[in-house]
C-alpha cells in the first residue's frame, strides 16, 4: 500500500492503494467514479479510456504509480453539464444502444478532436478502431464525430 495524490477532473484526491493497481480500479472502486468502464482489462476494447494530460489512455493498464502529477480527466469531468461538443453530438445522433462502451468512445473521440479538430475518415478510423462497440453503433459514432468536428 502507498499513498498517491491524484489530480482528477480538476480536483485533488488522495488514495491509499497497492502501487500496481490500475487507475481503472482506483477510479471505480476507491473513488466511486463509475463512468470509466471495465471491458477487458488488457487494453483491447477501449471501454476504460480516460485522458492523461489530454491524451487518450487505457486506464486498465495504467498503473496508479505511473501517473505522477499528470492531470486525469474522466467522462465525469469532460464537461460540467454534459455539454462537451462530443457529448452533444452523441445525443444528437442518439448513438447509444446499451451505452456501456460509450464513455470510452466519447473520451477517445474527444482526445482525437482536441488534437485534430477536422480529422479525415482515415484518421477517425485510425483513432477509433481500438474501441469496441459490441452493439455495433460504429456508423453513428462516425456521424457524431463528423458533427462534433464541425461544431
Amino acid at each position: 500500500m502507498a499513498q498517491f495524490n491524484l489530480r482528477i477532473n480538476g480536483k485533488q484526491h488522495q488514495v491509499d492503494v497497492d502501487p500496481s493497481t490500475p487507475l481503472l480500479w482506483v477510479l471505480r472502486d476507491h473513488l466511486k467514479m463509475k463512468g470509466t468502464k471495465y471491458g477487458c482489462g488488457v487494453a483491447q476494447c477501449g471501454s476504460c479510456t480516460i485522458h492523461l494530460d489530454g491524451q487518450a489512455v487505457r486506464s486498465c493498464i495504467t498503473f496508479v504509480d505511473s501517473v505522477g502529477d499528470k492531470e486525469i480527466t474522466t467522462i465525469e469531468g469532460l464537461s460540467e453539464n454534459g455539454d462537451h461538443p462530443v457529448q452533444q453530438a452523441w445525443l444528437e445522433h442518439d448513438v447509444a444502444q446499451c451505452g456501456y462502451c460509450q464513455p470510452g468512445q466519447i473520451m477517445q473521440a474527444a482526445a482525437l478532436l482536441k488534437e485534430n479538430p477536422h480529422p479525415s475518415d482515415e484518421e477517425i478510423e485510425e483513432a477509433m478502431s481500438g474501441n469496441i462497440c459490441r452493439c455495433g453503433t460504429y456508423t453513428r459514432i462516425k456521424q457524431a464525430i463528423k458533427t462534433a468536428s464541425n461544431s
Binding site: 463509475k34 463512468g35 471495465y38 467522462i75 454534459g82 452523441w90 442518439d94 447509444a96 451505452g99 460509450q102
Partner: peptide, 19 residues
C-alpha cells in the same frame, strides 16, 4: 423519433449498470 431517455446519463457516465 424520440431520443433515448437514458441518453444524457449515458454520455455523462452516470452509474446505470450493474457493475
Amino acid at each position: 423519433s424520440k431520443k433515448n431517455v437514458n441518453g444524457k446519463d449515458i454520455v455523462t457516465g452516470k452509474p446505470l449498470f450493474g457493475l
